Structure formats: C-alpha cells, structure tokens
Amino acid sequence: MSQPIVIVGSGLAGYNLAREFRKLDKATPLVVVSRDHAGFYSKPMLSNALAGKKTAATLVMKAAEKMREELNATLLDRTGLKRIDTAAQTIELTDGETLHYRDLALALGADPIRLPLAGDAEPEVMSVNDLDDYARFAERLEGADTVAILGGGLIGCEFANDLLHRGVAPTVIDVADKLLSRLLPPQASERLQEKLGAAGVAFRLGVSVTRVDRDGNGYQLTLSDGSRLYADRVLSAIGLKPRTGLAAEAGIATQRGITTDRLLATSAPHVYALGDCAEVAGLSLPFVLPLMAQTRALAATLAGTPTPVVYPAMPVTVKTPACPTVVCPPLPGAAGSWSVELSDDACTARFADAAGQLRGFALLGAAVSQRQALAVQVPAWLD
C-alpha cells in the first residue's frame, strides 16, 4: 500500500481539505489526526451559538464515525502531534505511534492570545477556541448576569451581541479607543458601538485589564486607569496566535505563521500548511473564505495538479445582528484613505487608493445589501 496523505487537524481547514481531496482522488490512503473528538463542526458558529440555544452536542454536524465513512479515511481522535521528521517523512504522535506520510498537511489552527494578568483568578479567565471551550463557557454562564469581555475585535463584539440573547449584560474592554480598530474607520466603529450599546452592551475603551481577582462568586477586574469593574465571568477574546512551535522545531520556516508559498508548500518537501496556522504568501487571514480557497487549491495539488491559491475580494460578515456589519478590509499596508457615508439606518465606508480604485469597504446596517456590488470592484488579493 502506498504511503498516506496525513492531515493534522480536524477543524474546517483539515476536514474540508480531506473532502476536496476525496472529490479528486478516491484511492490514496488518507489519515486525519485530531486533538479532540474528531466530530465535524464549524468553529465560527461558536461566537453566535447562544442566540440559537446551541449546546456543544448540537453544534456537531457529523460525528467522527460518519466522517470516517464519508472520507474513507483513518481517523485518529484525541491524538496530538508530538514531532515531525521531515527527512524521514514521519510524524510522532502523542500516543507514541509513528506515521509515515507521502505528503503532510498541517492544519494545526491557532491558540488564544492571553494577556499577562496579575491576580489570583487569572487562570479562571475563559476563552472559547473550540467545542470543549464552548461547553465549559456555556456551563459557567449558568447563574451569571454580567460578563467582562477582554477585546473589542471581531470575536469580542460577536460574543457581546450573543450574550445579550442569554440575558447576560456584557462589558467590552479594549486598549484601543474604538471597536474593530483594525478593520473599521472611526465613523463606522462609532456606529457599531452606538448600536451595540443601544442593545445593552457596555464599553470600557482606551484601557486594559491589569489584574483579575476573585470577589465572592465573581471577579474584580482592575483596569489600567486604576478603576475597578465587577463581573460574574470573564472572557478573553484578544485574538489568536498561529500554532507554529512544532513546525519550527522541525526546521520548517515560520514567521507569524507557518510560511508557505501559493501552493501552500512550506520550506520542507512534502509538507504543507493551511488555515489559521499558515502564513500564505505573506498573508495571515483567519477567516473562512480564504481557508476554503486554500483547501480547494491544496486538494488539487495533492491530487497531482499543482494549483496556486487564489484570493478574490473576500468580505467578512461580522455576526452582530444588533448592527449588521460586513467588512472587506484592504490589504495590510495598502496606501489609500477611507470615505464614509452615514444615514439613519446605514453606514457605507469605502477605502480607495490615490487613483480612485476601490481597495476595501465596510458596510453597516442597511448598507450590507451593497456587499456583492462592491466586492466585484475590489481587486483580488492573490490572482
């Protein structure tokens, strides 16, 4: 039997790569290594699952056994990656098993960034990065009336909106002075804050949390301006850091993520990376649409047709029903400026270069209906 293609990771990147590959190649042995239960679920759904009254169990779309049958694959659940030997084309797993691979695809994901907090309750600050995290978070919300959210980015805002559906009052805390500071111009950020505030979200912007201490059944947060805030629970949504450690230990080049070219190939022969752990042609894009483009391209490459990944304009829907929001951010470092149009029920922000070429946009409220019309005007990031 020929050596298998081994995919490490059973999130959206890993499983969708396996699915796309099986469309093209029914016979090559396929192994998927999963740190968790290996059931298929959509991680982006975690930040708006409370509104739908979803439990960890109901978020699983297909159980591991179903995925095993669907993919005609060997599925190794509750199994981690311990070591990569690129010369021998083997990986060592946490259960001691050694696997040989024809090609290795690293879909390792990313870890939550943790603030260096003082205080006796720092270990009790929660984050939600997978299904097990969500189960613990949902369980600990029982009896909670208030939640402090560390981070006013996309995930922090989504969780804040979602908690309102649970009858929980969230307070968003961020060192930046506006929400989604990396994605929105000031006027759009102000509109988002206004709408979320009207729905019941409180904000402490321009400050950071320095310590978290137990206070009865909840927590006392000390902020950088010396003020204090009480919350029944504390959720960290600062951001994600790609998992690059094992790749770096194996001598595979890493920067912010595991670096790849447009074929998703790393610096090691027969080793590829995709999803949140990957930095593709200098871009780290932790969103669903880039990930799906990667899986289709890499599947074709692994099936024998080298295919560079293509990134068209890829608008991101922010899951904040209190203020519907779509963002198509300009390329990092792109030269240009924002122009913003505001009305009572809409905000349309366009980012254009000196020649007037649209390079990105942000749409709030009724303006989200312009998503497709503007997306076709934005040049591809990679073509």
Rank of each mutant, 00 (worst) to 15 (best):
residue 2 S to Y: 12
residue 2 S to P: 12
residue 2 S to V: 12
residue 5 I to Q: 11
residue 8 V to K: 01
residue 14 G to M: 03
residue 19 R to A: 13
residue 25 D to N: 07
residue 29 P to F: 04
residue 34 S to W: 04
residue 44 P to Y: 11
residue 47 S to V: 05
residue 50 L to P: 00
residue 51 A to S: 12
residue 52 G to D: 15
residue 53 K to A: 15
residue 54 K to S: 13
residue 55 T to W: 10
residue 55 T to N: 07
residue 63 A to Q: 13
residue 64 A to D: 12
residue 67 M to V: 13
residue 68 R to F: 02
residue 78 R to W: 14
residue 78 R to F: 14
residue 92 E to W: 11
residue 95 D to I: 12
residue 96 G to V: 08
residue 100 H to M: 15
residue 107 A to D: 06
residue 109 G to N: 00
residue 109 G to F: 00
residue 111 D to Q: 15
residue 116 P to E: 10
residue 117 L to Y: 00
residue 117 L to N: 01
residue 119 G to Q: 01
residue 132 D to G: 13
residue 144 A to H: 05
residue 150 L to H: 00
residue 152 G to C: 09
residue 152 G to V: 03
residue 155 I to V: 15
residue 156 G to L: 02
residue 158 E to N: 04
residue 161 N to C: 05
residue 163 L to Q: 02
residue 167 G to W: 10
residue 170 P to I: 05
residue 181 S to H: 12
residue 182 R to F: 11
residue 195 K to F: 07
residue 197 G to I: 04
residue 200 G to E: 00
residue 204 R to M: 04
residue 204 R to Q: 11
residue 211 R to K: 15
residue 212 V to F: 03
residue 213 D to T: 02
residue 213 D to N: 02
residue 214 R to M: 13
residue 214 R to L: 15
residue 216 G to S: 09
residue 221 L to P: 00
residue 223 L to S: 09
residue 225 D to F: 03
residue 226 G to Q: 11
residue 235 L to H: 01
residue 236 S to R: 01
residue 240 L to H: 08
residue 242 P to V: 06
residue 242 P to A: 05
residue 248 A to Q: 11
residue 251 G to P: 03
residue 260 T to L: 00
residue 269 P to H: 07
residue 272 Y to P: 06
residue 272 Y to I: 07
residue 275 G to V: 04
residue 278 A to N: 05
residue 285 L to Y: 07
residue 287 F to M: 07
residue 289 L to G: 12
residue 295 T to L: 02
residue 299 A to M: 08
residue 302 L to R: 00
residue 311 Y to P: 00
residue 313 A to E: 05
residue 316 V to S: 10
residue 318 V to I: 11
residue 321 P to E: 07
residue 321 P to F: 06
residue 323 C to S: 09
residue 324 P to H: 06
residue 324 P to W: 02
residue 331 L to K: 13
residue 341 E to H: 14
residue 348 T to H: 08
residue 350 R to C: 12
residue 372 Q to Y: 15
residue 373 A to G: 08
residue 375 A to V: 04
